[in-house]
Design a protein around this nucleic acid. Structure first.
Lengths: 201, 201
DNA sequence: GCTACTAACTAACATTTGTTAGTAATGCAA
DNA sequence: TTGCATTACTAACAAATGTTAGTTAGTAGC
């Protein structure tokens, strides 16, 4: 082994290293624009050697997409289980979303942009998870409406618009940038809520 | 010529036909996922024959991206020139944006998502236009602040979030769907403005 | 010290990629 | 009728693609 990644023997496996590097490259050049040879040379090995760690290129994409989806869903489920106030729920759902996307910037970007290149079977599974996630947000909005805290809006439209602004975070968030994930979440919540709270207009 | 597209001899050129078909395919499979042979067989010809109409694959992408950028910029410039009231300005800027993106769904999608695959030179030019466009929105927000109509927000943050929700339209807008572009623009404006107007909270 | 495993290698594969060269058939203008 | 521009074709190119086969050096457990 020429290149040893023995900083911490088990926590950072070679596989994780390959995936991390791949994700970073896919952010710059896209999934289809990043070849196995590109990835290999970035981690200082031959393309064929990658297959000792990863069974196929698509696994890099699918593992990332599903991991992120699971994390988002789990966070949202917790919020919906524990809290009662719709405003609080929405605020925490936003915080959860921003936290997960900014925690791993590259995975976040790939999750938002590159899932389209999943194989059909995986793409279908993925879209199902995404729909479930959207449903979680819809539930919060509905509850808010019922309790008279939120305006009466087209829920589908509102959820999509909200998620749009949340997902866009991956586009411009930089860890060393001016705002922390918490500040971003707070500002986004403000932005969204001021447009939803009834006592406005 | 086996396939004749003589519905209206000059308005729909073969080139336009090729580009339209390409854009539709790129929406489904991405720029890199759409090969010249894919495009060719979709318009019933050989890949090599495409080069009688288009000098390179990238031209399909670059022409689309720059055309859309120009249209958006021109619309925004008109709004900023003619009107004075910041709320009216913002509302019309949103309407302009939604109109142009929904007028040609495929071009809109490609414009939003695939510009990354432009060659470096073109990408730089493109990003410059996009920055200019963002600046136009920033101007409106600033004016609104100065006149005390809008809240004091982080302008960069607000503009990016606004554009995020505007661009997301390409993701889910369907011509035969429930909402017309005008209705979408109106709802988006409502959503954005209620989060900006001072008399809120 | 033998065994089994891990992780790297070289070589090659069958496709697919964007694109060029060269060649015909067509239709319009002179 | 001649000539030119348009638009299609076939054939081929060099490069790049994801992946497999077969091999080998090092390491850990018995």
């Amino acid at each position: 082994m020429l290149v040893s990644s023995k900083i911490s023997p088990k926590t950072t496996t070679r596989k994780a290293q390959i995936i991390d590097t791949s994700l970073e490259m896919m952010c710059r050049m896209g999934y289809q624009g990043t070849s196995m040879r590109d990835i290999a040379s970035a981690v200082n090995m031959e393309a064929a050697s990658l297959y000792n760690h990863i069974s196929a290129k698509e696994v890099i994409l699918s593992e990332t997409c599903f991991q992120m989806a699971e994390r988002l869903l789990q966070g949202l489920a917790e919020v919906n289980d524990i809290y009662f106030n719709p405003i609080e729920k929405l605020s925490l759902a936003v915080k959860n979303h921003v936290k997960i996307l900014t925690e791993n910037t590259f995975a976040g970007w790939v999750f938002v942009h590159e899932w389209r290149h999943l194989s059909e079977a995986n793409r279908n599974r993925f879209v199902a998870l995404r729909d479930e996630y959207e449903k979680g947000f819809t539930t919060i909005l509905k509850q808010g409406e019922d309790e008279g805290v939120f305006q009466d809006v087209n829920n589908k439209f509102a959820v999509l618009t909200i998620l749009a602004s949340l997902n866009w975070v991956v586009e411009w968030y930089k860890p060393k940038g001016g705002m922390t994930p918490e500040q971003i979440a707070e500002k986004l919540t403000e932005f969204i809520l001021s447009g939803l709270k009834k006592e406005n207009n």
